[in-house]
Nucleic acid binder design. Structure first.
Length: 140
DNA sequence: TGTGAGCGC
């Protein structure tokens, strides 16, 4: 089934106004470090972007709860200003609920804005208390 | 104009 709307990352090139070609070596080096163009593998965690600044965590959970059991939802906001950054995360209880959530909410309107829902990228923990707050450095 | 394409403390 083809998606009815483009993925957020695909929109970036539409905003590009560059009229010259980048150096091939630099482009190849950047491609080696950049994220692959494939979508993230299915996960119960969803990354939701395109949110209105007025959309709150409760509204996010409310909207996504129609398609499955939401165990956690969060709109990311600036810690000091308190304003929404325009994206958030929704975690479903099961993979199939997450899939239904994407199918049901991706490209739909929430608070007047078209939102994008996709699988969130896996994120390693910043530090482990077992290592005295320091990340593992390969030392045994 | 927290009018943006952004992965969380």
């Amino acid at each position: 089934m083809p998606p009815s709307v483009a993925a957020p990352r695909s929109l970036r090139r539409l905003f590009s106004t560059s009229s010259f070609f980048p150096p091939p070596a630099a482009a190849a080096a950047a491609a080696a470090v950049a994220q692959p163009r494939v979508e993230p593998e299915p996960n119960t965690n969803l990354f939701v972007s395109g949110l209105s600044k007025r959309t709150t965590t409760e509204k996010l959970r409310e909207a996504f709860s129609q398609f499955g059991e939401v165990v956690h939802a969060r709109v990311v906001s600036d810690r000091i200003s308190g304003y929404s950054k325009g994206f958030g995360f929704v975690r479903y209880a099961t993979l199939e609920d997450a899939a239904k959530g994407i199918e049901g909410m991706n490209g739909k309107y929430l608070d007047g804005w078209v939102i994008f829902a996709e699988y969130a990228r896996p994120r390693p923990p910043p530090a482990s208390p077992l290592n005295n707050g320091f990340p593992s450095y390969g030392h045994q």
